[in-house]
Amino acid sequence: MTDVYKALADETRRTLLDVLLERDEQTLFELCSTLAMRHGLTPSRQAVSQHLDVLEQAGLVLTERRGRYKLHTIDTSPLTQIAERWPDRKALP
């Protein structure tokens, strides 16, 4: 669970998740381009790759190799653990 919190703690990683939520199966180049053009963020490719590694270790990003491309896809299932841990107080009896 702590990996999910660490992954979500950084604004760039949250932005990467937002970008992947809009469209899955993006390459590192596509993600870097989108960060720069739409969000005004210009981290190096290496920095974005490291952010993606943190997200992947937390289970929030899945990767798949197709030929020479590595495609990144979002997986929101680890986020359900957060809602299960702290249910809405209004829903409690």
Rank of each mutant, 00 (worst) to 15 (best):
E84C: 12
I74K: 05
F29T: 09
T15M: 07
L79Q: 11
R13D: 00
R38H: 08
E11A: 13
L31H: 10
R14H: 08
R89T: 11
H72R: 05
S44L: 05
E56C: 01
T73F: 02
D3F: 12
Y5L: 11
Q50G: 04
Q57T: 12
R66E: 04
S49N: 09
S77P: 15
D3N: 08
L31A: 11
A58H: 07
D88M: 08
A9Y: 08
A83F: 14
L41C: 12
R65K: 09
E30W: 04
K90V: 15
L31T: 05
A83Y: 13
T2D: 15
T76Q: 12
P93T: 00
Q46C: 06
P78R: 04
L28I: 05
R68Q: 12
H72I: 03
C32V: 10
M37F: 08
E22Y: 08
P78N: 10
T2R: 15
M1S: 15
L35R: 02
K70T: 15
F29N: 14
Y69N: 12
L28W: 08
Q81E: 14
D88L: 12
E56I: 05
Q50C: 09
S44W: 05
R14E: 00
A7S: 01
A58W: 09
H51F: 00
L60H: 01
L55Y: 04
L92E: 09
T34V: 06
G59A: 08
D53M: 03
E11P: 13
E56Y: 06
W86A: 10
M1V: 13
R23G: 07
Y5N: 13
G59K: 04
Y5S: 12
